[in-house]
Design a protein around this nucleic acid. Structure first.
Lengths: 154, 154
DNA sequence: GTTGAAAGCAGGAGGGT
DNA sequence: ACCCTCCTGCTTTCAAC
């Protein structure tokens, strides 16, 4: 799919404010509302935009602990690991990656004791390495045209 | 802030569909539209909901490579690392964490060559460990009441 | 919390370039 | 293919309760 300036502008606006109305979007890209709606629908149907989500602050919800748990899952145990650990509600991200620690989990917890319990579960499927998150400096940074067009390395 | 069943239901709905209209939300929680709007505004002002975002698929945008780069940044170099690496457009997440690898970056790239270039930049500030993402099994899983109320470990 | 009216928005039809 | 304007029906918002 080919994206022009307007599509990129729309992607940028919607990544920053997913609830912006089509009328407002239309103003920002200097098009009529129907034309704007049409473009957004095309982005959705092309699978470029896969959805919209409210961004929630775990801290404010009583989840002060955030951690990255790396798990070196034994390959035979992978199905059970996926069923019994990856599915746990504390797991916000789970990626299968290359390297020794083949799974990377981002976890939120109410307390260190709960994190301890989580890690104990994960340990059943392989060795773990846990890092506590001090601070998140970037979260879900919008993807901009410069990344895709490679204006980054000049 | 105290959240009741309705607030949790709204949080759940909005985390899954950030563009759901207030009238639709109202139907789902069996309240009037103004009452529903009022509750969502309260969640926003309390900082529980920090925003709304379109979810975009990097693959469809010509960014087939996703990687986790761990960087053991020398403490004296941290300010420059934050300025010159964390700010790069390829960086979607950046967390400062405990442990030897004190920074964790989630990066998207057009090619392995570009990733190589990125890692070379990061290397200037400390040793790096790079893992390529095979597949993401969970991304930004909604935070539900069970996590916060701890129904998970019974 | 509710209702109800006014203003604003979304989505279709039809037409122009 | 792409965009426009107009029109209808929803959605949002505000006031009054």
């Amino acid at each position: 799919m080919e994206l022009d300036d307007v599509d990129w502008k729309l992607l940028d606006l919607l990544q920053r404010d997913g609830r912006m109305t089509f009328t407002e979007l239309a103003k920002r890209v200097s098009l009529s509302a129907p034309a704007t709606t049409e473009r957004v629908r095309r982005l959705e149907q092309a699978g470029v935009v896969t959805g919209y989500a409210a961004v929630v602050d775990p801290q404010r919800l009583g989840l002060p602990i955030e951690a990255i748990v790396r798990v070196r899952v034994r390959s035979l145990d992978t199905p059970r690991f996926r069923e019994r650990v990856v599915t746990m509600a504390q797991v916000r991200d789970a990626d299968h990656v290359t390297g020794d620690d083949c799974w990377l989990l981002r976890v939120v917890c109410r307390s260190m004791v709960e994190l301890e319990g989580f890690v104990e579960q994960a340990q059943r499927y392989g060795d773990t390495t846990t890092s506590l998150v001090f601070s998140s400096h970037v979260r879900n940074r919008p993807i901009t045209r410069e990344v895709v067009d490679g204006i980054v390395y000049r």
